[in-house]
Design a protein around this nucleic acid. Structure first.
Lengths: 195, 195
DNA sequence: ACCAATAATTAACCTAGGTTAATTTCTTCT
DNA sequence: AGAAGAAATTAACCTAGGTTAATTATTGGT
């Protein structure tokens, strides 16, 4: 597929951030990744210092503890920019993996080179800052929910926030997003049903 | 105190972010806040849409649940930029309060006006983006610790990360940073001592 | 130096959620 | 449609951390 054509699917996304990106000008080489449902774009511990554009599909950010317990940090639906800010910016290993929950199509650029080419552009910088604000605020709100609400409440919130996911992804993934085991979630659902 | 002189104490902070801010050019009116130990710069639920410069002192970000349980999101030591990105950017109520743990001196600007005046400056935008990256990464790492480590481990990590705070702030605040009750922390310490 | 207030410890008891394992339901593949 | 695997439910039991409350330090103000 043609590169410009592919990237054009992100026009709306950037417009929403108040920016009109000029893909022609960008000479950094692009990669394309086709990830099948269940497979990983990258795994926890990799050096994932690239910027990824999720063109189609659905992914989750998942980190697993030493004891093998999974935690789903967030879900992302196309069109969306994905990746690890930390790994990109500090060139360190990434703390989570990205797993496709549906077959997904992703393009990517090496962050350092991409940024070097775009940082001349004030519009881009403003857009990038806005993007960072947005993901930071999302984390702030999620942290808040974890601290202030019970698991039951977090489940109810999940159902309200992601109505389209509720019946599409397996319950164990919902549980790992809420921060409990599938068994505990099943118990909560049972309790809710009895009302 | 003279405004420029006051702000100059942040020169080093900005240099570290690769930027040399020109305070002369900034005409937005500045406020000064002197907060005594224990008092709040702002409370959870306020509209704190300002950018704050912590010139001297030490603060904590604390949010309290409906049941009155406190959670310390983070500590900040001068010199440091503080405030709520969410409340500044979206003009919504802030999800946490900022409490002084030592007598603190803070200057502030209304974010919207400050940003309007600075956004012309590419250097500032890069610096702002770098700042956002930094606080985002800190949150990412903290989330990681919460998900992957036990309370005992989190306490040990706190002691390693904040050696200077360990004997300065009350233990209940350490407990609320770790996400447990003071009673539970006391138990953990007892267990560690017996070794 | 003393008092009052605040913080920390300890103990007894409670609860949400974890663990293991058996059973049932849903998917997916041929 | 039927078999094999994966997901969800349920039950019995366990544990980290919460709750309450009594006891013992610490701290700060006069």
């Amino acid at each position: 597929m043609d590169r410009i054509q592919l990237q054009n699917s992100f026009q709306a996304y950037f417009n929403e951030l108040g920016y009109d990106i000029d893909w022609q000008r960008l000479t950094v080489p692009m990669d394309v990744h086709v990830i099948r449902k269940g497979d990983y774009l990258f795994q926890q511990g990799d050096f994932a210092n690239r910027l990824y554009f999720l063109h189609s599909g659905l992914v989750r950010y998942v980190s697993v503890s030493d004891e093998g317990k999974e935690f789903t940090q967030t879900f992302a639906k196309s069109p969306r920019i994905i990746g690890s800010t930390k790994a990109m910016v500090t060139e360190t290993r990434v703390l989570f993996g990205i797993q496709a929950l549906e077959d997904s199509m992703i393009s990517s650029y090496p962050w350092r080179a991409f940024y070097e080419q775009m940082r001349q552009d004030v519009g881009f910088l403003e857009c990038y800052a806005k993007f960072l604000e947005r993901i930071f605020i999302a984390k702030e709100e999620r942290e808040n929910a974890f601290v202030k609400h019970s698991a039951e409440r977090r489940y109810l919130d999940f159902c309200a926030d992601y109505p389209e996911l509720k019946n599409v992804i397996p319950q164990q993934q919902i549980a790992s997003y809420i921060g409990i085991t599938p068994v505990a979630l099943s118990r909560i659902r049972q309790k809710l049903n009895r009302r």
